[in-house]
Structures are given as C-alpha cells and as structure tokens.
Design a protein around this nucleic acid. Structure first.
Lengths: 344, 344
DNA sequence: CCCACTTTTGACAACGTTATCATTTTATTT
DNA sequence: AAATAAAATGATAACGTTGTCAAAAGTGGG
C-alpha cells in the first residue's frame, strides 16, 4: 500500500510491465481497451512512477534550474514565478541558482550544478545569459538551456533566447519626455555588465536623434543599478551651472535615488526636474510623485522561456514543437506624475 | 570518458564496487590505505556519483523544498539565500515552492510535491509553518521538515522549528518610542493569518503595560501587510479629533503607507507623528525620514533551519547531531529618524 | 483460408548504485 | 602459537523503471 509499483499495476491490469510503462508515457501503440484497463489499475492503486528509477533508466533529470545574478528581488521573484508556473504545469521542479556573474568559475559551476543535481535544463537570466563564454561552455557540455537577454536583433549568437526589447522601450520613454516639452535630458546608466543598460542608452540616443536633439556628454552619467548611484549622480547634475530639466534613469532604483536627491535639494519633481525609471517596481507606484517607468512582462517572459526549454528537452511529442528560437518582448510605457509637466 | 562509474573506479583502484561505495559515503570501516587508493582513482577519472541510481537504491531524495506564502520579495529572497547557502555546502539542491496558505488542498499539495520531486525534506516559512493541520499531515506522511515561526514559547507543538521572537522585538520598539516621550501610540496590524502580527501586537501591549500606559482601542487598527493598508489606516487615525503622536506598524510596508498618508496630509514625520516599521526592508533605509524598524536575521534563520533539517535527514554521522528542536532568534532594533523626537 | 505484412505485446536485460551477508584479513586473548 | 573475536572486504542481489528485440495478434489481398 505504501508504494505501488509498475509490477502491481501490471498484475492488476493483467498486462506486462512494459505495457504499463507504455501507457504511463503515453506511447501511441497501445490498444484503447488496454489503456483503459491500465489506467483504472493505476487509479485504483494510486500508483505514482518512481522518479529515481525513471531517471536512472532514461537518463533524464529531475528539475530545471533557474540561474540569475540580479540584485532586484522584485525582478527575481517575477522570474521565479513565471518559470514556476510552467514547471508545475509540466510536472517539473524548479531549482534556483543565484550566482555572481563576474565569478571566473561560473561556467564550470553551472556544469557542475547540472550534473550534481541532475537537472534537465537551465533557464538563464541576464546578465549571465549574455556572457558568450558561458553559453559556449554550456553548449560544449550539451546542456539544454534558454537565455533571457536584452536586445532585439544582432544576438542570434546567444540563441536560444527570449529577448526583451529594452532599446525601443527606452526610446519610447525618452520620446514621451520630449513630448512633454523637454530638450535637456540627462541619462543615468546602470552597470555595463547588464546589457540592458547599453540597450537603454541606445534607445535614449535614438529618441534624441529622431527629434534632432544634440547629445550632451555632460548629461550622461555612468553608475550602477542602485538607489545610491541615482542619488550621487543626481547631486552631480544638480551642481551643474546649466541643469537639465529631465533625467532618464536606467531603472527604478536609480530613479528613486535621483528623486530623493532632488527633493532633499529643495527642488520638486516633476516641476523642476522630470524623472523616469524602468521596470515598474512596486515602489515606483508608491513614490511621490509616482514614477513614470516601463514595465517588463518579466513573469510572462520567464514563462515563455521555460515553456520553450521544456519543449526542447522533451521527446518531440507530435504536434508541439516548432517554436521560434528567438522571441521578442516589448516593455510597456507606464506614464505617471514624475514626468508630467503641469498644464500651463 | 563521458561517464565514469563506480565500476571504473573499482577497476582502477583494484578494489570491489562496494569498497568504492563505502569510500564515497565515507563509511568508517575502510582502511586508510584503500581510501586513498580509491580517492585517487576517483580523482583521476573525474568520477561523479549518479544521483538517480543512488536515489533509487537508497530511496533518498536529493533536493530540499522551500515552502512559503509571503508577498514580500525581500523576505523571500533572504530566505532563499539563507537556505541555499547551506544546501550548497551540503550538496543539496533547493526547489522553491511558493503557495497560497489559504488554499484548502495545500497539505496534500505539499505531500505531492515531495513525492513527485523526490525531495528529502521541506523548509517551511510562515504562515504555512504555523498551520497545525498542515504540520499534522506532513508528520503523518513521514515527511521531514522544519518550520520557521513567530513566537517564543508555547508552540513546541509546531516543532521542529526555528522561532523568531517577534514579541520581544515589538516590545523593544515600543519601549524605544515610549522613551522618546510618547504615550499615545497607535498600532497597525497585519493579516492575522501571519502569527507574527498577533505576536507583534502582544509585544506592543507588553510595553504599554510595563510603562503603565492604558490601552486605547481606538488606536489599534486591523489591516494587512501592505502599503495601502498603512495608508488607509493612517488616514483614519488622522481623522480622529485626538490624534496619537506615534504609530507602531506591524511591518515596513504598512509604515511606508502610513508615512505617505501623513505627509500628504501636510504633517511631518517624526515631528507630528513618529512611525516605526518592522523587517528592515531596503526601502526603510531610503524613505524620508529613514525608518526605525526591527531587523530579522532572515538569512541566518533560514540557514539554521536548513542545517537543522539536513542534520535530521542524514544518517547520523558521528558527532554532528543533538541540535535543539526549537531555536529562538531575536530581531534587532534599528533606530532611524522616523522615531527620533527633535531635541528640545 | 492462407500468406505476407503491420501493429501490438511481452520477456528479459540494463541503468549505476547500495544492502545483505558470507568471506577474508587483522587484532586480541590465552 | 592456536583460538577466538573483530574488522575489512567482496560477490551478488536488489531498487523500479525503460530499451531492445523477438513473438503474438491483427489486417488485407489474393
């Protein structure tokens, strides 16, 4: 009773072990009548296949791995939830694997991870997904994976991947700001290791060019994806003799930092300086004023990536299959007060 | 080369399969000389045990599950990282399992989860860990687990568990506020399903009693662990003809909401009303003014829980063992401007 | 109704490990 | 040095599933 095996099921259904196995894996070559017999027996015994045995014989793994190196908990959680929703649907477990993408040994670590935990594949978030060397090692070791990356075209190299079109989104944000009457617009970078940051920068540049606004190097500041970075950079901007009237920030945290700096200098957002973020973190809605930002459908993207990966891994069951290797997702502009010029 | 097995190792080391197995599982009854032989062979071949085979034969699982139902990403991430640090050290994988603690089927789901994914045990965060019915089912199904709960004594029932002493921490926060000269102090609850909230309430009451301050029902408001709840409740408080001079909030998000409401009513924190939170979320440091709060060592707690669980699961290897069934952790008071009365 | 052909089925080996228990080696006692 | 106990080792049988391949059962054409 504690543990029904295929043997028990076979006995009860009066068929061979192999036939039961066939039914379980719904192989097509079993007569309908027997299928029913077996299924009833399975039902009656409450039989559950033994994972270990199955994996041993078929050399398949236990779960998928989710690899990331990202300081933003909101982002990670969305990612996890997206991946998990599909894993559950498909009967996979999900193991998480945060890591430092700048560690030297990371590629080997990932290979180890897969072997040691018998994972069937990896879903890899940026920026790990954007490191060509790591990807190469994975491919060399025949590890199934799918990456989530920033960027729209060029990087077919990194396939298979899900792409987030940060560039367009950033362009759209910037154009929104321009349409609010600004022409002196600063840009705050995040880390360069995250490819999203250069992409977002490109989008900013695109928008300026389209509207014939010249780039002003003095208004473009390097930094990290952090509150403090935004704070510090905003102070620098405030110290300029000729201040910009808007700042496009690479993410919400930077924007929050910038906003704090501006307020503590006695100025106001958006009247004195307009601010935009990127990511739509919960706090962007709660800041005062609420923050204009771009919302990535992180959960959806992670879900798509996971679905793609599982399809890739699975013994091509009939129709499913044939999804694209590269899918593109476009973040959505969310306009809030932090960029809305008071009506004249 | 692709895959070395025990057999290969045995051949190279010129010993039997079983001896190799013994070395791998460091069983004590192998002569040092042979151990060395075998280890060298393992080294040379780059041998890695096959998880599936091992699990099949020994009917053990190879990953732990982390179960939680908590809307706070910072908390979850800390939990995950704490658990993961130990898992890695001990060679376990970690599967995550967020869930709705109010779902009826949750206990069964957990049992399924363990069976389907061959998990060796569960680390369970509140509030799931606090539901006696779920715990009972787990015990009935012989599933190894450890819970993380709020509360200091009474609940030996829920053992094995790691306890967070929310009550004392809340008392300490409240006493700090009293020592700043307040005596009209409101309290904002979180959800009652989280046992942390009643515990924190008790701590608040303890402090008032100790200092001979009478409880004022009008200042005690139900709510949820959310920004909006804090906002709404603060508005209610502000509408009172006799306003309190401080609010003790059940967590940081509530506090952030309350702070926002107070500011948008044109009042100031802490001059008009002092505010305290609980949890030390990153944004509590970045709010203006920065927020007094209590910091839970979430990562440490999760790590301890995980270590405990693994010790429990493992074939008692010599010395290790004998940890307590109930461990208590005390959050630490962090004083920031939101409760500091301006010096007179 | 028989033969060739396709579909369905089952017997048995195999996956890589650990458990059991008998055997050999080493240590201890007399 | 023999006898006995203790420790170390190995041969072989599991664990529960799927892969292989041959046998059995249908199907159709003549």
């Amino acid at each position: 009773m504690t543990k029904a095996t295929i043997k028990d099921v076979a006995k009860l259904a009066n068929v061979s072990l192999k036939t039961v196995s066939r039914v379980i894996n719904n192989e097509p070559t079993v007569r309908a009548a027997k299928v029913k017999l077996v299924q009833d027996a399975i039902q009656k015994l409450g039989y559950k296949p033994n994972l270990a045995a199955r994996n041993l014989r078929s050399s398949k793994g236990y779960a998928l791995g989710l690899v990331y190196d990202n300081p933003n908990p909101y982002y990670i959680i969305d990612m996890q939830n997206g991946a998990l929703s599909i894993c559950r649907e498909m009967g996979y477990g999900l193991q998480i694997h945060p890591c430092r993408s700048d560690a030297l040994s990371i590629a080997d670590n990932l290979v180890q991870l897969v072997k040691n935990n018998d994972l069937s594949g990896l879903v890899i978030a940026p920026p790990v997904s954007e490191r060509a060397d790591i990807i190469a090692v994975l491919k060399a070791n025949n590890i199934h994976f799918v990456g989530i990356v920033s960027g729209s075209e060029e990087d077919k190299t990194l396939s298979p991947c899900m792409c987030v079109d940060d560039r367009s989104a950033s362009r759209i944000i910037t154009e929104h700001i321009i349409s609010e009457g600004h022409s002196e617009i600063a840009f705050f970078w995040g880390e360069e290791v995250h490819k999203s940051s250069p992409e977002r920068y490109k989008g900013y540049v695109d928008a300026l060019q389209t509207h014939g606004i010249a780039l002003n190097e003095a208004l473009i500041l390097q930094g990290q994806y952090s509150f403090d970075s935004g704070y510090v950079n905003a102070q620098k901007i405030l110290a300029l003799k000729h201040r910009p009237t808007a700042i496009v920030c690479s993410n919400d945290e930077i924007a929050a930092g910038a906003m704090a700096a501006i307020k503590s200098a006695g100025l106001s957002v958006p009247t004195d300086i307009a601010i935009s973020g990127f990511e739509d973190s919960p706090f962007s809605r709660h800041s005062s004023p609420p923050m204009t930002t771009a919302k990535q459908a992180t959960e959806t993207i992670a879900a798509s990536a996971t679905k793609f990966l599982i399809n890739k891994i699975r013994p091509i069951s009939q129709e499913e299959r044939g999804e694209e290797t590269v899918m593109i997702f476009s973040p959505e502009l969310i306009v809030r007060q932090s960029t809305l010029s008071p009506s004249p």
